[in-house]
Simulated scan of single mutants.
Amino acid sequence: MQKTLLERAKTLEPLHPNKSTGLFGGESSGILNWNDIAYPHWYKIYKRLIGNYWQADEVNMAGDVKQFSSLTKSEKDAYLKIIGLLSTLDGPQTRTALLLSLYATDASVQSIMAVIAQQEAVHNESYSYVLSSIVSLDEQNEAFQLGRKDPVLLKRNENLIKQYNDFVDDPSVENILKTLVYTSLLEGMFFYSGFAFFYNLARHNKMVGTSTMISYINRDELEHGRFIAELFRATLAENPEHNSEELITWVYDHFKESVELEIEWSTYVLEDVEGIDLDEMAGYIKYRANKMIRMMGLNDIYPEHVDNPMKWIRAYVDNFDGTKTDFFEQKSRQYTKTSDLNGFDDL
């Protein structure tokens, strides 16, 4: 099938209708009336996203500053490497969300992507804030160089980098769909071995400020993952010529390869960390992959990993594991600014 390159959506097209005729490659005026959009329930997603507002420097890091020096060498190394990993994911994600919005011909998608991009920018800022609280500038810079230099991390990110750059060079519907697949993997699986490391520290009363920050990031990513999966399904439904065996096979193959790379990375970075069972972690990664691919309308890849093997993580972040509970009806942890009451009991 011949690719058709998309043009960037016009800012205003008064002759076109306000309600878009297509998510990508459609027609719309550029005027957004949330009461007249093609996918009305996306307004709830928008409201959930803006309701999660928080700022990095309002999280109390005083306890972490005192505790970092008492961590084991393995814990310190993993801490810095994982911050390096997270920064290499959230930085490009800010730009990717904005690039997707440039080609979206649905104003509601543009607005939701703008909020996602802003939140990814906050996430990236939070890693700088966390590191500036506990280590020297040289150590901060070294952690942020990992995404460019660490061979295991470079291998882990290679497919993601290629797909994101392919979308920049070739903005077709096919590449939008494939970019949404990798965005879904990023939001719903790639972060999670890193999140688990910080939650493991917190359950041993270590680096609780960092864990609190991570839980806010995690909460945002759950929301992002939900929307990206819905956007993938809706885009595929609007472009049925792409709903082919070739694309579906590509999705399954790239999910499986991503899982193997994530397990390799997590083994490399967590193998000497006390309290993390690497077999359990591998199962957790497969469990997360199953959840994300189901949200995208496809079948489990790992039928033996439909249950969360690391249930203790649920204590640290909101989740939508309950299949019988509507995601939007679940109670979200409330963000609280720094005070003397902030601490482990708030998680």
Rank of each mutant, 00 (worst) to 15 (best):
A196M: 11
S266G: 05
L98G: 08
L23G: 15
L49M: 09
E260M: 03
S332A: 13
A104K: 10
M295G: 09
I82W: 01
D272M: 04
L222T: 04
E7V: 13
G30F: 03
H242S: 08
A9Q: 13
F195S: 02
E142L: 13
H123T: 14
L261H: 04
L71G: 04
Y103M: 02
A78F: 01
I176E: 11
S20D: 15
I285Q: 10
D326L: 08
A143H: 08
H123F: 04
L146S: 06
P240N: 05
G188C: 07
I176N: 09
E7I: 12
G209W: 01
Y316E: 09
S193W: 00
K256R: 15
E142Y: 01
I134S: 01
V259L: 10
Q118V: 08
K73V: 04
Q67A: 04
E260S: 12
E221F: 03
T88W: 10
I217N: 02
V122P: 03
H123M: 05
D277R: 00
L201W: 00
Y164C: 06
A38L: 13
D321M: 08
D220M: 05
Q145L: 14
D169Y: 11
M296R: 10
T323W: 02
Y287G: 10
A289E: 02
V251F: 03
T249Q: 07
S172V: 04
D57W: 10
L201D: 14
P151S: 03
A315H: 11
D279G: 14
S133P: 14
Y46H: 05
K331Y: 05
E329I: 05
A62C: 09
T183N: 00
E158G: 00
G25V: 15
I37R: 00
R156S: 01
G188R: 06
Y284F: 07
D90T: 14
N52L: 14
R314S: 11
L222G: 08
V122W: 08
K47C: 04
Y302T: 02
A289F: 10
M189L: 13
K149G: 09
K291H: 12
T94V: 09
W42N: 02
P309Y: 13
N243V: 12
I217R: 00
A114F: 11
N33V: 08
D321Y: 00
V173M: 11
S29L: 03
A237Q: 09
D90R: 00
I161P: 00
Q140L: 13
D166F: 02
D340A: 02
G283S: 03
G91P: 10
P309E: 01
E142K: 15
E58C: 10
K73H: 06
K324F: 06
I214H: 06
T336K: 10
E125A: 05
V152R: 05
Q334D: 06
E245T: 15
L6D: 13
T105M: 00
K291T: 14
Y53N: 09
T267C: 10
Q118G: 03
N18R: 05
F327T: 13
S184H: 10
D138Y: 14
L99K: 13
I31V: 14
S132P: 01
P171I: 12
T325R: 07
N200H: 03
S332N: 09
I301V: 13
